[in-house]
Design a binder for these strands. Structure first.
Lengths: 334, 334
DNA sequence: CTTCGGTGACGTATCGTTAATTCAACGTAG
DNA sequence: CTACGTTGAATTAACGATACGTCACCGAAG
């Protein structure tokens, strides 16, 4: 494989000139004719710069890592998109990792920890990382940004509390009185429950306890079964996790509960899948793309030594997407 | 950040000894006491090896890239899992990329093309990459393995033809006569259609033309609508893409077609979601995990200069997972 | 005729690691 | 007592790219 040295020899110039041509450095100037001669030599030899050598010399790699707690979750699609695009803007590539495989001593963690791999790290699902993993990560000299509220770290987050509130208020406005919140575990779920609680309170309704059954389809099904065992069955449900909503729909079907006629359902987060389910699921769309974009920006602030523009993303707001899974309880006609 | 030099100074030994301790090299021997002294110094200084420097020196990085045509697709979950685990076995990390963002000149492509980034490349969805991107990739000196049948490249693939055959034969055995294949585009879809055709032929039935409507939920819905417009409506459908199956279910619901009573549906590929849909979808499970694992093994064969053990993965075979979306046409009782 | 500034380019130290080579010290066999 | 093998470790030359310092050359100003 051709190196700068080969190019230099072929073009009859020194290493320095080739480097200058490659990087457009102004330090070393050259005649236009020299430049084209070097360019032609590069082409002929099929020269490709060596990333490892550059990284070593420059002490940065143009790569950032993003750790997600469940790579499969479709809600991360737009997040990834935002991160990729913003990273590209900074000339960076993204190394994707799953929190599930991030055990202490794992390949991925070892790679991150070693110097000269990435310029910074983005994490969503911090609560799902082992404490010792977080401790090892914290010892990393490159900046870490948490895409989630974090007490002792730079962070940036979407407004989950507000989403819970919006979803619940929508159901309240539909005249529902017995509304249950099916949640997961962790801070994010907790925030959404808080929003639910707040909306219930301000409507003068009694919030039901947080049904924390976990994540995914099965969790939703379990949650619904639990909810229906209450003394007075709910007429509406806020589902914390979008994949759980699929489980809720399935369990309702199995229990012979018609949606939305007997039970209204609203999910937090919106993904393509929701409009293709039957009934199509009413959901609160979260600005995940923006989270990704803003996360990268904030991370690069940190990398540049600037304070970092974190906090809650409030623009755009979580947005209600009305479909068919929620309906008014007592239509005006009755 | 501490370097080997710092550790050497702190431990009172030379660089070479530190390197030997880190790598367990037998070349440079040392007293056990020296070893522990070095180890202690490493701990105290929080030494982490520099990846860029190692890569430069060793001329390999311990990273491989995997390019997928649609990162979001849940069928890739097990593939990724297999790749990650096999890669870890080789001490390697995986750089994930999406074919959709792999335009010529994109960050990701540029990064891959430069030397010293990855030791090899895995691609699934080759047909979806632009020709010029493939050409640029081909000029890469590191090995490339296509996770899909490829005429002019090392490749490894699952048996898509067989999957189409198994799905179709299942419906034939259920006494269906009018079976339609809703497909996508590209080689993989084509193979599955071939299997469908073969099963129809050997049952003495006339295969319907390939309804190539693309990928995803909308494609499935479109496919069903087209299928139902035929002179004699089908009683069963083989859906090429698992996400399309969701669309088929939705469209059937909207058209008032009961599944499985009036229409049997079977999908190719199986994901968790399928068992949580209502009706739960009968599907053909493909050995995606094995594809990932075998792909990495074959890639490392290539990297080591060995011929590479490609070809079709026939063990395990595609496996029928019977759920509720397909039923016999004329039960014995009628 | 010298001095000066600008242009165009070169030489080389450096980044952190690894591996080949060299070397000192020590024991032991002849 | 010398020669030699073994052990334990140090020196050093790459790996490829970058940026600092240097320098030759040339035209113009003093």
């Amino acid at each position: 494989m051709a190196t700068q040295r080969d190019v230099a020899r072929a073009a009859g110039v020194s290493l320095a000139v080739v480097s200058a041509v490659v990087n457009g450095t102004s330090h070393t100037r050259m005649r236009e004719s020299t430049r084209t001669r070097v360019l032609r030599a590069m082409q002929q030899l099929g020269y490709q710069p060596n990333h490892a050598a550059r990284s070593l010399r420059l002490n940065h790699t143009g790569m950032i890592a993003m750790i997600l707690n469940k790579l499969d979750n479709p809600v991360y699609g737009p997040l990834r998109q935002g991160v990729y695009e913003a990273a590209a803007e900074h000339g960076a590539t993204v190394l994707l990792g799953d929190a599930e495989t991030m055990r202490s001593g794992s390949q991925f963690l070892t790679r991150l920890l070693s110097q000269g791999t990435v310029d910074g790290i983005l994490i969503r699902g911090e609560g799902l990382l082992d404490d010792d993993v977080m401790a090892e990560l914290r010892s990393h000299p490159k900046p870490i940004l948490i895409l989630e509220h974090a007490p002792d770290h730079p962070w940036i987050d979407i407004d989950d509390r507000r989403a819970g509130e919006i979803a619940t208020r929508f159901l309240v406005n539909l005249r529902h009185r017995h509304i249950v919140f099916i949640g997961g575990s962790g801070y994010i779920s907790q925030q959404r429950y808080l929003g639910y609680q707040q909306a219930m309170d301000s409507a003068g309704l009694a919030p039901a306890p947080h049904l924390a059954t976990g994540f995914g389809e099965q969790a939703g099904a379990d949650g619904l079964r639990q909810a229906m065992q209450a003394a007075t069955a709910p007429t509406a449900i806020v589902v914390n996790n979008i994949m759980s909503a699929v489980g809720v729909l399935a369990a309702a079907h199995d229990l012979g509960i018609a949606i939305p006629d007997r039970l209204s359902v609203i999910g937090i987060h919106d993904v393509d899948l929701m409009q293709h389910l039957r009934p199509a699921v009413t959901a609160v769309r979260m600005p995940m793309y923006q989270l990704g974009w803003a996360g990268v920006e904030a991370l690069y602030d940190l990398i540049a030594g600037r304070p970092g523009t974190g906090g809650l993303i409030t623009d755009p707001e979580p947005e209600l997407v009305i479909r068919d899974s929620a309906t008014a309880l007592n239509p005006p006609g009755t």
